[in-house]
Design a binder for these strands. Structure first.
Length: 96
DNA sequence: CGTGTGACTGGGC
DNA sequence: GGCCCAGCCACAC
């Protein structure tokens, strides 16, 4: 991992407690750099090694190809979900 | 160096 | 609730 930004994003995601989530934009603001899209780019590249299902969009949804797998993890961890979307206001990690 | 693109977001209809 | 659009930032061509 040579890029600080990439490392920082993965760090935050790994620290998200089970049953909790964070949004792309929130993570980007916490890092104070780049933007929501940059966080998304990192997830597409290195997200495979972190609990990516705990990172969702501002509206609590996720792209179709990921929602399928994510739903199973959410149900397994007891993450508040409704209609295939996480209830961000309830599942948002305590640190945020 | 200009253009297109994406695991995004907020505002408007 | 949904869809569409403009703004956003880094990266590949």
């Amino acid at each position: 991992m040579d890029d600080d930004f990439t490392e920082a994003v993965l760090e935050v995601v790994e620290q998200l407690p089970p049953g909790c989530v964070a949004t792309y934009g929130l993570i980007a603001e916490r890092l104070g750099r780049g933007g929501a899209r940059q966080v998304g780019r990192v997830m597409s590249l290195e997200g495979h090694s972190v609990p990516w299902w705990r990172v969702v969009r501002a509206d609590g949804s996720l792209p179709p190809h990921l929602v399928v797998d994510a739903q199973q993890h959410w149900r397994d961890e007891g993450t508040p979900v409704r209609n295939g979307r996480v209830i961000v206001k309830d599942a948002l990690a305590p640190d945020f």
